[in-house]
């Protein structure tokens, strides 16, 4: 069954910016789906239209066969959303923030309180329940947004850059929680500009740039499509290059710097084996661009802006 079906979705902001240029997208029930793209690609606009925060210009949106134009309230009842920007009343307590949200969905006080407690405990916010939101750290605020998005037990969870600005540890713990919920049957759609995030969590990825979906494929296929990755090697001393072959090609940038294009599937050990045989001494090595950039270059033959690994 389709959790989400978007057809020819367009959005032109009043300033004339064309943020979405006819997006088609389908997400199956139970999927963990990533919308991947650089800043300004139109991700938040798309999420905003789904969740009733942005008016669409044209197109069709269906959530579990309910049409956004026909029954917006039924669409909204099935979605839980964590927006990119914080949107709290910072003077309200954490408990009220989550509990009131349940109330807005029509969940009675007793059930709302039960769920609020459960979520605050699961997301390690229980000891902050009585604190006003403004006393929370950045990571806690994100988790509180998640609790608020889940309190009405949505069928689809939508996360707009949920881990932007979080440190590695917090990011990982959020990933673990989301994976658990997805395994329990929740359909999750997240936007991100980290390829690593999509890779770690999602079984399918759509790449969006300038309001257009460039590619929509299983994550494994997309990564497999990364034909090569380029590394920059700083050498200890001027050396003769090993000969190019099918898997690795070399370019001399300056006497002490070379670039190596490494085919997908080749291990670093194999690369260094070649270098060792040619008696090239490597001082240090770094990837030239991150993998998302490489993916973009592969897809559109140009560099994406605002991407990060």
């Amino acid at each position: 069954m389709e959790a989400l079906n978007i057809k020819q979705l367009r959005k032109t902001y009043s300033a004339g910016v064309e943020a979405l240029k006819g997006v088609d997208l389908k997400v199956e029930q139970g999927e963990f789906f990533a919308l991947l793209g650089p800043n300004g690609a139109g991700k938040s606009t798309l999420i905003g239209i789904l969740t009733g925060l942005v008016n669409k210009t044209s197109g069709k949106v269906q959530v579990f066969d309910e049409d956004l134009d026909v029954s917006p309230e039924r669409v909204k009842a099935q979605l839980g959303v964590m927006t990119q920007e914080l949107n709290f009343n910072i003077f309200e307590s954490c408990w009220n923030t989550v509990n009131f949200q349940a109330g807005y969905y029509g969940i009675d006080w007793k059930e709302a309180s039960r769920r609020t407690e459960q979520l605050l405990r699961d997301l390690e916010l229980w000891d902050k329940a009585k604190q006003p939101v403004r006393n929370l750290s950045g990571g806690m605020k994100r988790r509180l947004m998640l609790a608020r998005a889940l309190v009405h037990d949505p069928r689809v969870l939508i996360l707009d850059e949920p881990t932007a600005g979080l440190d590695i540890e917090l990011r990982r713990s959020l990933w673990v929680y989301l994976q658990k919920r997805n395994e329990a049957g929740l359909t999750i759609i997240l936007t991100t500009h980290y390829l690593e995030e999509a890779e770690a969590l999602c079984n399918r990825v759509a790449i969006i740039d300038q309001g257009t979906i460039l590619r929509d494929a299983p994550t494994r296929d997309l990564l497999g499509q990364l034909k090569k990755q380029t590394f920059v090697l700083e050498l200890v001393e001027k050396s003769e290059m090993p000969g190019d072959d099918e898997q690795v090609q070399y370019r001399i940038v300056d006497p002490l710097t070379i670039e190596a294009d490494v085919a997908h599937g080749i291990t670093m050990n194999e690369v260094f084996e070649r270098l060792k045989q040619a008696e090239v001494k490597v001082q240090s090595m770094r990837p030239k661009a991150n993998r998302l950039e490489e993916l973009f270059i592969d897809l559109v033959g140009k560099k994406g802006k605002g991407l990060s690994a």
Binding site: T51, G52, L53, P72, E73, R74, K76, A77, L79, V81, T83, E85, L86, N87, F88, N89, I90, E92, F100, Q101, Y104, Y105, G106, R148, H152
Partner: peptide, 18 residues
């Protein structure tokens, strides 16, 4: 207006509250 300003009006806008 403060709900608009601090954006928590979105709590209601995303909910099925008519």
């Amino acid at each position: 207006f403060s709900a608009k300003f601090m954006r928590h009006i979105e709590e209601m806008l995303v909910s099925p509250m008519p």
